[in-house]
Design a protein around this nucleic acid. Structure first.
Lengths: 197, 197
DNA sequence: ACCTGAACACCGTTCAAGT
DNA sequence: ACCTGAACACCGTTCAAGT
């Protein structure tokens, strides 16, 4: 890659990250090119598709998620590892509104630029799930695809502005549906009561 | 309303229903006007906003949901009533892709044309939920807003094409998170085992 | 090799002009 | 009272022309 091209690429990516964090995954590509002081065609040259751009944006974070899963697998108890990772996954999406639908679609489309990263992340989650299942700590009838889907659903709920206050509680509810035999010892403070509105 | 206006209104609504069922809640309004052989301004005159159009489309169905909740409240056991209604609510949204985000937003925006209907539906669900909670059949720390959110999340999952096969199972998982003491008698066939993929 | 921006086909929304 | 469609400001995507 020529030096000027590399410079454009990097700058474009930095601007795109800011714009996507601010406006979401369906931000205007024109606007990104404009803010980067770059011709619209240059953006398309470096990132022939919106998914290619997002893949470049998310690759690092997704790789981190995969690495963290591997780490949790050896450092934490099966149930703690799973729930911690789930929380992390949902939190990650809060930086990029509207990204979960794209990731769901990418999982099913091998031609998508996001496909490989998503498959890898799903596999990482599946390992944590299997481990928890083997320890009798997670429902045995859930598979990795469904785990991914539930994460995506929680992320989608997090995108709804009116649900800010409920996000944590909704996470607990769904997590409790996957996990079993959680906190059968101790536990009264586990589920805090909430004011009905 | 003048006779010709009424005719336009009805025709527009019929065409819009078809187009929205086929293309989802973000279908092109221009396209709807075009297919209805009506000027674009006529559409805007009758439905000043996309939400106004959808409100007209959905009012009947949403009212039916409310009525059905009331009926279930007297005809079924608290837990059966709740789970049946939830299933119905999720099934309803399958006809109108991408509508759940709009309904979530409408709940929080009193100026939205969809606001009233959504509030009514939420209240209907809340009554079924409270009844199940009073009978000890539903988690006591869930409120109507969260119930609505979980329905919306399941509906969103149903919009993802790759999840068709998993939709029913995901419903069961989330439903089991809300319901408690389900099928403590009998029950081996309650949760069918699934082939891991 | 890379960049640019006009061109094309769309979109939502408004509003002067018509009947 | 109602309808129409041009006008405006956007969008994604492509591609001839430039350096």
């Amino acid at each position: 890659m020529r030096a000027d091209a590399k410079k454009n690429y990097d700058h474009l990516l930095a601007v795109a990250r800011a714009v996507v964090k601010e406006q979401g995954a369906d931000a205007s590509l024109r606007d990104i090119a404009r803010r980067a002081d770059v011709g619209l065609g240059t953006l398309y040259r470096h990132f022939p598709t919106r998914e290619a751009l997002l893949e470049a944006l998310l690759r690092t974070s997704l790789d981190e998620m995969t690495a963290q899963a591997a780490e949790l697998e050896t450092s934490s108890a099966p149930d703690d590892a799973l729930v911690t990772w789930l929380r992390e996954a949902v939190a990650f999406t809060r930086n990029y509104h509207g990204i979960t639908a794209l990731m769901m679609a990418a999982l099913d489309d091998p031609k998508s630029a996001l496909h490989a990263s998503c498959v890898t992340v799903r596999a990482a989650g599946t390992r944590l799930l299997s481990r928890a299942q083997a320890a009798g700590k997670a429902r045995s009838d859930v598979d990795g695809t469904e785990l991914f889907a539930l994460i995506a659903a929680l992320a989608w709920l997090g995108d709804q502005p009116s649900l800010g206050r409920h996000a944590d509680h909704l996470f607990e509810i769904v997590a409790s549906a996957i996990l079993t035999n959680r906190a059968s010892n101790g536990g009264r403070a586990q589920r805090r009561p909430r004011d009905r509105s």
